[in-house]
Design a protein around this nucleic acid. Structure first.
Length: 734
DNA sequence: GCGATCTGGATTTTT
DNA sequence: TCCAGATCGC
């Protein structure tokens, strides 16, 4: 078979990776270096050249989107549908394994997935039930604690046994909540996201035969975005590998042919440390598996100037694996830096430049405005709205996260599994059917005392007539609805029944303004349509899942699009985090200010600056042709005007790669930072200073050093305002 | 059960 | 400033 097409369009490094000999391989893939292409071609290479069965290949990604894209591209490349090939997210794959081995993993066959929102609600409920102070034990923090424990592979028992730290009251309480939470999950047959992974890790760890089976089956394991893996995911990879001595008993490993890991990642693009991702896993992988190493450094996206600038910024980080992006393309235009007086002016400037871009015959959708935090989108949106320019904001609520969808889904969940207490709590009185807190509390108490689910408890209480007449009626009605939904055979009609019988639409119409209610109604209609057209994945069917179970799992695992992607031509607005993996001809990094980016919290907490810098690197490398960095001297933050110096990341770009749009201030940002004249020693209490905009003022206090240095000034000309400023924005007056 | 009012907190996000 | 969540009064 002619396989030249698999290598023809690749550069040397890509070719080296795709055709790497059996053994482990680590591909360090810089931004825009064609990493997905390498993964896809590698899989095709394994199938067509090494005649590996698709069944023996496991490809893991981080998002459903990436998994879908990879599948499509493989289909295109091979022009066959590689059935049996496992491509999915860590969670998707673990879900699949648990469906196949529910019993062995200690789960009921009907187990359902608890998404973050469900998890949060459940934890809050438990904290309330335990009569703990919600101020002292915020559910969010406890949720973080529990997930962190699970991600470290720690069960309640593991922690309870490990001594000292958990003797303190707070930790002991956290642990107690964890215990209650886990018990509640088990009673209801619910599995949270971390649990999906942990159960599989435990299954493979404790059952050598199973482990051996999958080690043998998956001869080739490919993992994307390895820098984003957490401890649990790393543990899973180790368990699936035949090579990691300590976890495998010799009698088993010797009988299994060696399997191969192909890992792709970029330590410079690790931006999810705050949610448990461990860049260290990349180095750990090198130590544990001694892979061959391929660097993809040729960039096909950005101009040489943009790459040079990004390289300079990222070089300020230590502990890199080292990589230098290059291109054989053109130098392109300089990085443009705009110092705005205010955030409003920044927005106007950015949108002005976008209009110019369009006037030059380009498309709106080629322009992206990237920012550090979501709140920054507001001003841009206002300005775009005023100028009547269409735009799209990424992020926000996704389809299956919408309240009305979750409501309807709770009816379905309950119809599917009566023990789902989370679902019960959510809709037992929604729409309100006259059940008060008292009745509800009574039901909870009974359930708790008899260690039964709420559904069991309430049906029991009905039989014993332990409820008031009104409550009795209400609950009868509710039970009736659930039973009716459950009686439907097809998924589509069950969902339709859930939406109709629940009378959610009427409820929202009564409760909310017409436009809001209308959108909810549309979403519910969309839900029915989605259910009616739902095609159960082959694997789910194979695993013996009912369409309903599979639909519910899908909804939790894949929350759907943020917005219906109307393919309109519009400006793209998103956070730097959401921009990862995307590219745009024209990119604005807005709000490049100390305190905002790098964010204050990351500056304060030791060791978090490097990740901010990587985020900057990610942002810069999104740009194909033009890159603007803008910062505002003043902006409204939490209802107060605050003043900030330009971001240190601007300073880290050599001046010869940049062009200052306005030399309004005394110096360019680079000079502001570099100039020895602008240091604390040049200011003293009571000294007079001048500010470009606020005029003459007097120094009333001084604090901080370097980037965080601030001086408080009383500006008499500006109506005796006391403003806190960066030194760099002030000029001493003799 | 629900609207009006008060309060506190405000990176980043996928599964 | 702006939002969500808690609290209060009917």
């Amino acid at each position: 078979m002619d396989v030249s097409h698999l290598l023809d369009e690749l550069n040397d490094a890509q070719r080296e990776a795709v055709s790497a000999e059996p053994g482990h391989c680590l591909v360090l893939a810089g931004a825009g270096s064609g990493k997905t292409r390498v993964l896809v071609h590698r899989i095709a290479w394994l199938i067509q050249v090494h005649h590996i069965s698709p069944m023996a290949i496991l490809a893991v990604t981080f998002t459903n989107k990436a998994a879908g894209e990879m599948r499509t591209r493989i289909c295109d490349l091979l022009s066959i549908n590689p059935d049996g090939l496992w491509i999915g997210t860590f969670h998707g794959i673990c879900h699949r394994l648990l469906r196949m081995h529910a019993q062995e993993a200690g789960l009921p066959e009907t187990f359902q997935i608890l998404d973050s929102d469900d998890q949060y609600r459940l934890i809050r409920r438990i904290i309330k039930d335990m009569e703990l102070d919600e101020g002292e034990y915020p559910a969010r923090a406890v949720q973080g604690f529990i997930n962190a424990q699970k991600e470290a592979g720690r069960r309640v028992e593991d922690i309870a046994q490990s001594t000292a730290v958990y003797q303190h009251d707070i930790q002991a309480k956290h642990l107690a909540i964890y215990r209650q939470y886990q018990a509640a999950c088990e009673r209801s047959g619910l599995v949270d996201f971390a649990e999906l992974l942990l159960r599989v890790v435990e299954l493979l760890r404790d059952q050598p035969a199973r482990r051996a089976y999958y080690q043998k089956r998956f001869g080739h394991i490919l993992i994307d975005e390895f820098q984003d893996t957490n401890s649990l995911q790393y543990a899973l990879v180790c368990l699936l590998s035949t090579d990691l001595g300590p976890v495998n008993s010799p009698e088993i490993t010797t009988t299994i042919p060696r399997n191969h890991l192909f890992v792709v990642g970029d330590d410079d693009q690790s931006i999810y440390g705050w949610r448990g991702a461990r860049v260290e896993n990349v180095n750990q992988f090198v130590r544990d598996f001694k892979p061959s190493l391929v660097r993809l450094e040729q960039n096909y996206r950005s101009t040489a100037t943009i790459l040079a600038a990004a390289n300079h910024v990222i070089e300020h980080n230590d502990d890199r694996m080292g990589k230098n992006l290059w291109t054989d393309g053109e130098d392109g235009e300089p990085i443009r830096i705009f110092p705005a007086y205010s955030a409003e002016e920044e927005a106007e400037f950015v949108i002005g430049r976008i209009q110019q871009w369009v006037d030059q015959g380009h498309r709106l959708s080629e322009a992206a405005i990237l920012y550090r935090s979501n709140a920054q989108s507001r001003l841009f949106e206002q300005t775009l709205l005023r100028e009547d320019i269409p735009y799209r904001v990424y992020g926000g609520q996704r389809f299956f996260e919408r309240a009305e969808i979750k409501d309807a889904m709770a009816y379905l969940r309950l119809a599917h599994n009566r023990d789902d207490d989370g679902a019960f709590e959510r809709v037992i009185n929604l729409p309100t059917r006259g059940l008060g807190q008292q009745t509800l509390q009574k039901i909870r108490t009974v359930a708790k005392e008899s260690d039964r689910s709420l559904w069991d408890a309430v049906t029991g209480m009905l039989k014993q007539s332990e409820l008031g007449a009104r409550g009795q009626n209400a609950i009868h009605g509710f039970i009736d609805i659930i039973e009716q939904i459950a009686a439907h055979e097809s998924l589509g009609s069950a969902v339709k029944a859930a939406v109709e019988l629940s009378q959610l639409v009427a409820w929202y119409q009564k409760k909310e303004p017409p436009d809001r209610a209308e959108s909810r109604e549309e979403n519910l209609a969309e839900l029915i349509r989605a259910a009616e057209g739902y095609q159960q994945p082959f694997e789910d069917e194979q695993a013996g899942l009912s369409p309903m179970a599979s639909f519910l799992a899908q909804a939790a695992l894949e929350a759907g699009e943020h917005q219906s992607d109307r393919w309109e031509d519009c400006v793209q607005l998103m956070t730097l985090h959401s921009a990862k993996g995307l590219e745009f001809p024209l990119v604005f990094l807005a709000g490049m200010e100390e305190g905002l980016f790098p964010h204050q919290k990351s500056v304060e907490e030791a060791g978090r600056l490097a990740e901010e810098r990587r985020l900057c690197y990610v942002g810069m490398t999104r740009a194909m042709q033009q890159l603007y960095l803008t910062h505002a001297e003043s902006r409204m933050l939490h209802g107060q005007t605050s003043f900030s110096a330009p971001s240190r990341f601007i300073r880290e770009i050599p001046e010869n790669l940049t062009e200052a749009i306005r030399q309004s201030q005394t110096q360019s940002p680079q000079q502001m930072w570099a100039s020895p004249a602008q240091s604390q020693s040049d200011f003293s209490l009571g000294a007079m200073v001048r500010h470009e905009r606020f005029g003459l003022g007097m120094v009333v206090s001084l604090e901080g050093q370097g980037a965080n240095a601030r001086v408080q000034v009383n500006f008499e000309e500006a109506g005796s305002k006391w403003l806190v400023l960066a030194y760099a924005n002030l000029e001493p007056v003799a």
